[in-house]
Design a protein around this nucleic acid. Sequence first.
DNA 1: AGCCAGGTTTAAT
DNA 2: ATTAAACATGGC
Length: 299
Amino acid sequence: MRPKPPFDFERSAQMHSRFRNSLPDLYEDNVYMRVLRTDRKPVLVSVSSRGTIREPRLLIDTYPLLNNSEVVQLKHVLRLMFEPTFDFDRFYAIAKKDATMRTIAKKLRGLRPIRPPTTFESVIIAITEQQISLHAAIAIRSRLIQRYGDTVTRGGRLFYSFPTPESLAKAKPAGLRKTGLSASKARCISEFSKKIANDEFNLDRLSQMDDDQVVAELTKFRGIGEWTAKYTLIRGMGRVNSLPADDLGIRRAVSQAYFNGRSISTEEVRITMTKKFAPYSGIAAFYLMYHLFWEQPSS
DNA sequence: AGCCAGGTTTAAT
DNA sequence: ATTAAACATGGC
């Protein structure tokens, strides 16, 4: 597979090895691993780089072996995950106009978020990450995946897929609670999964809508507020001009970069980022956060 | 030990 | 329309 350049696969993938056991993504020895689904069966996909940032080339290995139709399906999913949804050259051109971002973008050139394969997964991840710390969220999410995901065994090792809407729709409240979810989040996840599983709501429709419409549609669900909807837009759907301006991490990053670290309002975040980087304010915020939290020793 | 962390809902002004 | 409390867990 040859994704559009520039793409720094190593840097982009290693975000997923930041925390031990942060399922469903694994990154070990420069190989990104993940269980993806075809129609029915879960497939362990291993991705490693055989190219450069300027000429990215990804080697894809799958297990078990696939038939032709399954190969087609997986190719589609992999494109969703690794191909950018926008023109990086234009983003970098705009980034250059800002002194701080110029430095960061130059250093991080080719970095991009690897997107989860489905919007459903993005929504569930966002719900688990509401309010609680990232560490807590990852622990809970891993238990959710181990309890409700499908598995592939390879080399005596067990790999988990992200749970399907059907599997979470069938989950009992007590089972969901056991993963560490609060009662209200468990209920929200159950309700949401049921509506997706029995096709009461089709998440694919969202891709036809503009950002504001998507937020309006998603916030109709109980348990999905503005933060969760916008998080889904930027991380799950690659809508790079949306940004959860009320997000604590983004606020810290923007404050650090442009306000000397003083605490700022969500309005200041929105105005600053939009003014400087529209229509790429979301990806710009991602770069600021990566720079602040992943690259620097501490803060 | 206690407080806070990448929110949302419900209920009460 | 705005404000407050409850929520569950993990890390420091």
